[in-house]
Structures are given as C-alpha cells and as structure tokens.
Write a protein that binds this DNA or RNA. Structure first.
Length: 263
DNA sequence: AAAACCAGCAACCGCGGTACC
DNA sequence: AGGTACCGCGGTTGCTGGTTT
C-alpha cells in the first residue's frame, strides 16, 4: 500500500527523533520494495521525512545486520590502525568493521580518542599523540586481545577477501589477517603487520630512566620517539598527573601502565 | 531532591561526486 | 555538453540519560 500525500500538512516534513511507528513503516516498505532511491522511497512509504533522513535511519539503525553495543578491543585496534592509514574516511573504515556504521565509528573517535588527546593537551593529529597511540594504546589493546583469546599465540586465518567476513574484524582486512600475535615476540605482544601498514609498534625507545625521558630526552631516535611527547602532552611531572585518572582506568592506559612500559 | 553539568549518540546539514535526462 | 536530481560522506548540532554538586 503506497501513501500519496495530499494536503500541505501531510507534506510537512518531520524532523528529530524517529518514532517506533516510523521505523516500522520504513522497515516494512524496504522489506517489500528494497532500499535505494531514497527520495521517492520516503514519499511512497508515506513518511514525512527526507530521503536522506530515511537512508540514515536505515543504515545506522534499522538495518538487520547493524551491530550495537560496545566497541571491542579488536575493533578499537582496527579503527586506530585504519584511521592512521586513511584519516577521517569513516565510511571506508566502517567497511572493515562488519555491522558497524561510519557514524558509530566517527562518534567513537570523537568521544573517546579525541577526549584522551584533549586530556593529554595534544592535538589528535599531532605526532605526539600518534606516538602515544602507537606505543601505549595499541600495544595495550593487543595485550587485551591476547588476554581474552587465551595464552596461545593468536594466528588469524589469512585470505579474507571481503570486508563483510564474519570471522572477526581482524580478518576483514588482508594485511591484518596475517597478523600473528605472539607473547614472546615482543613486549607489545608481537604485532607483526606493522611493516606493511607503515606503523611501528615496536616498544617505545624510552631510556632506562623514564623520569629523565619524561623531561624531554633525546628524541633523535626518529620514528616513535615518544619521550618528547610526555613533556609536550603534559606528562612532564609524572608524580602529579594533571588529569582525572579515573577517566583512564576503563579504556586506556593508566599511569601505572606507563610505568610498566618502562620496566 | 533538585539543579547543573557532562558524555554519548542519533540526527541533521552542507558539500562534492555521479548518474540520468 | 550542460543541467538537475540524487546519493553518500564528513562535520556539526542538539537531545537524552547519567553523574556530580
């Protein structure tokens, strides 16, 4: 049954949150006619919404394969990795996280990643913050993934071709599918796809005297010199972190982790 | 208990690219 | 070839629920 609007009132476009009724109308219409041609779809379905709005609602919320809930450490790792390659190409990144939408990934980046950059007094695009990601956050995520997958080295099955694979996010991208995580291979858990991805996940080249490094030691080691970052990002005084540590306990590294990195 | 504040997320907006006429 | 409509993307806004004061 197709609804053709007649009066001007009926034509008036709705905005804001979608109602359950509207969701149902949209889902039913797409079930019968398929998606696409959003402008005419909106009219024909009798929804007083723009085609854009319908498309967004469907893609970000109503689609049956949309995954909801917390971003897993694996997914976080993939997001960080892919963002380092492609920047804010959210839809492209989303292709490699089955069930996740570009909007969700974008929100994750803005609310979590940028928040931490802010607390470190870093620009999210700065070399300093990228070093923090590379040497602290990513190794920590790798460790977490290892911890949840047992003690044995994790060898992801290679050969995944389509981003929509169900074998897990790490298999969705060929380079990452070759990743072998071995506890003994490095202190970071042996993230070994780094060469092909242009990232260096090797342990941070900090000095034995972490405190000295925090003071802005020699960063001539080239890539990955994370030491300079600390002073620039507000870590110059280890004893007196200038942020609310509780923020870090859940998602990211803590000051304790930073010390452990140094051991 | 109420007000103020904050974080997270859903939805909107503007723009560029592309397909179609 | 030019114009128009539509689609998709990235940035931004604003609402809502939770937390703090």
């Amino acid at each position: 049954m197709e609804f053709i609007p007649r009066s001007e009132e009926e034509m008036e476009l709705r905005r804001g949150a979608w109602t359950a009724e509207e969701d149902l109308v949209l889902m039913n219409y797409i079930a019968l006619h398929g998606e696409g041609r959003w402008s005419s779809l909106a009219r024909r379905a009798g929804l007083r919404r723009t085609g854009k709005s319908c498309r967004l609602r469907w893609l970000n919320y109503l689609r049956p394969d949309v995954r909801r809930g917390n971003i897993t450490p694996e997914e976080q790792l993939l997001i960080l990795e892919l963002h380092s390659r492609w920047g804010n190409r959210w839809s492209k990144i989303a292709q490699y996280l089955p069930g996740r939408t570009d909007n969700e990934i974008k929100n994750y980046w803005r609310t979590r990643v940028q928040k931490h950059a802010k607390h470190l007094h870093c620009d999210v695009h700065s070399k300093q913050f990228k070093d923090v990601l590379r040497h602290l956050w990513i190794p920590r995520l790798v460790e977490r993934i290892q911890a949840t997958s047992g003690d044995s080295p994790v060898v992801a099955s290679a050969g995944a071709e389509a981003p929509t694979t169900c074998d897990g996010p790490m298999n969705a991208i060929p380079e990452l599918a070759q990743v072998k995580m071995s506890p003994e291979s490095s202190s970071t858990g042996g993230w070994s796809s780094v060469d092909s991805l242009g990232l260096d996940f090797s342990p941070p080249p900090v000095s034995n005297d972490f405190g000295a490094g925090m003071q802005g030691g020699d960063d001539s080691s080239g890539v990955g010199g994370v030491t300079g970052c600390w002073s620039e990002c507000g870590y110059s005084d280890l004893g007196l972190p200038d942020f609310d540590q509780s923020i870090w306990e859940e998602e990211l590294w803590s000051m304790e982790d930073i010390w452990l990195q140094q051991q």
